[in-house]
Amino acid sequence: MLWEAIPSALAAAFAPSTLLTVAGLLGLARPLRNATVFLITAAAVTLTVGFVVVGVLAGTGIDDSSKHPTVPPTIDLVIGLVILAFGAYVARRPPHAPKKKPEQREMRLLVVVGLGLLLGSPSPMYLASLHALAKGNPSGVAMVFSVILLAAIVLSMAELPILYYVFAPERAAAALKSANEWLARNGRVIGLSAAGVVGTYFVVSGIVELV
């Protein structure tokens, strides 16, 4: 169900590492080329995973005699536990020391593509969002639209800075610097809180459906 998938997608969109990477690419030589290649690569991974996961989940556990999807509730429970475990793992790790801003140099496209593949890989939050969407058993145009919408939300921390840079390069550079500084102070707490809320929701949902 799309309405249930959007909150998880918004939580997945909170990715300080993606914002930091885009800010770094926009500070190097050929900024728009690098940032655009990064976004296209990440989007390709995100969309591919989205279509595959929703297609598989929506095509399993469906009772043809019923109009309601019957995706096993154990998937809710497992996804919730994975998100909570991931949050606990991150919480136990010491915070990363802030990195110095890279000097103005040119980055190879292969490295940019590698960054897009890495940061475009699915997070537990995104998988939870796709699972929530699959429970509505979407098909055809509805599925395509929903997956594209969720992918756009998940990649918003890459899309918005690039758009801002296109129209106001100098302001975008200053805004990205301030945003990264704020995220360095508060991003950990916000990310862990989001993981706790989303993970708990899916665990409770799975238990209720099982009972």
Rank of each mutant, 00 (worst) to 15 (best):
A88V: 12
V111N: 12
P124M: 13
Y89L: 14
L192F: 06
E4K: 04
E181P: 06
I207M: 12
T18I: 01
A29V: 00
L28R: 00
G187E: 09
V54Q: 01
T200V: 08
L115Y: 10
G187H: 03
A175M: 15
A35L: 02
L117T: 11
K67I: 09
V45G: 02
I153C: 07
G196E: 05
S139L: 14
R33G: 00
P98G: 03
L127A: 09
R33K: 01
G140S: 13
L20I: 00
A128K: 05
P161R: 02
S146M: 12
I153R: 02
A134M: 12
S146E: 14
V53G: 13
Y201P: 06
G187P: 05
L149T: 15
L39E: 03
T46G: 10
R108Q: 14
L26W: 00
P161A: 00
V203G: 02
A9D: 04
E106S: 14
A9E: 03
T70D: 14
I79F: 15
S139K: 15
I40P: 01
A42L: 04
P94T: 06
L28T: 07
H131V: 08
K177C: 10
L84I: 14
S8F: 13
A15E: 08
A35C: 05
V211T: 02
P7K: 00
V53A: 14
I148E: 06
P73K: 10
M143A: 13
L57F: 12
G27M: 07
I207P: 05
E159N: 00
D76Y: 08
M125R: 02
V112H: 01
G206V: 02
E181Y: 08
T41E: 01
S129K: 07
F51N: 06
P95T: 07
V82Y: 07
